[in-house]
């Protein structure tokens, strides 16, 4: 066999048309789309790798199975029949943070839980995204004045999308998640607006009355989170 292309192929559009037809015929009409037509005539597209990766990223999100409070009940409804978040390519709840891309924060964050949430967030691989679900995660919501309540998850971790409501309806959560996927696909990112509380070593804290008092209880290598309520928004 020669490496030269055959005459029938060179100089004729016949082959192209045939390929296209072969791909278009005999299949269910439902599968015929503009994209398929384009692919049929030339099975290559040109794009930037970044752009392609963003599109892939946005189209297949693994959510962290992360139930905190009331909103998690509505979140379960969002995953379940009727609302079925999976339709948008983002409905596979993963139990381990190491397998997840997106964390939905569905509930009130309190002092005891914030360090844990920070750690769970840290355990997620990059790139990672956070959707705040409901008023509590946004600002503390109806419990904002509580002595034990963090005034929003954004005081602890960076957040991409806020979905308001108490709790938001499943439709609202879907809108929020899809909006985020859209942003990811477009390569947009959200700025962090609040300086978050960090996990710090106890010995790194600024010395004051409280630190002195707790020195006997806490080992100096232990990680701690310090809440300065007076600075809360």
């Amino acid at each position: 066999m020669s490496n030269e292309p055959r005459d029938v192929i060179r100089g004729s559009t016949d082959a192209q048309t045939k390929t296209q037809e072969a791909r278009m015929e005999g299949v269910d009409n439902r599968f015929n789309s503009k994209l398929r037509e384009a692919f049929g005539s030339s099975p290559f597209i040109l794009t930037k790798f970044d752009k392609f990766m963003n599109w892939v990223r946005g189209s297949s999100m693994f959510m962290l199975q992360f139930g905190i409070a009331c909103c998690s009940i509505e979140m379960m409804h969002t995953y379940a029949v009727k609302h079925d978040l999976d339709r948008f390519g983002s409905g596979v709840p993963r139990a381990s943070p190491r397998q997840a891309d997106v964390m939905i924060v569905p509930g009130t964050i309190v002092t005891k839980f914030a360090p844990r949430m920070k750690r769970v967030y840290d355990q997620m691989p990059e790139p990672k995204f956070v959707v705040n679900m409901g008023s509590c995660a946004i600002s503390g919501g109806p419990f904002q004045e509580g002595y034990n309540v963090i005034k929003g998850a954004e005081e602890v971790i960076p957040v991409d999308i806020h979905v308001p409501g108490c709790p938001p309806r499943p439709e609202a959560l879907i809108y929020g998640v899809v909006k985020m996927q859209e942003r990811i696909a477009n390569g947009e990112s959200s700025p962090v607006t609040v300086k978050p509380y960090e996990l710090e070593q106890f010995s790194d804290l600024k010395q004051d009355e409280l630190v002195d008092k707790l020195a006997s209880q806490i080992d100096e290598d232990d990680l701690v989170m310090r809440y300065n309520w007076a600075d809360s928004p």
Partner: peptide, 20 residues
């Protein structure tokens, strides 16, 4: 935690340190 929050002399604005 420092103090007992539902007692009347509790000051909510005081900072707290929570161990991880």
């Amino acid at each position: 935690w420092q103090g007992h929050p539902l007692s009347s002399d509790y000051d909510q604005d005081k900072p707290q340190i929570v161990q991880f």
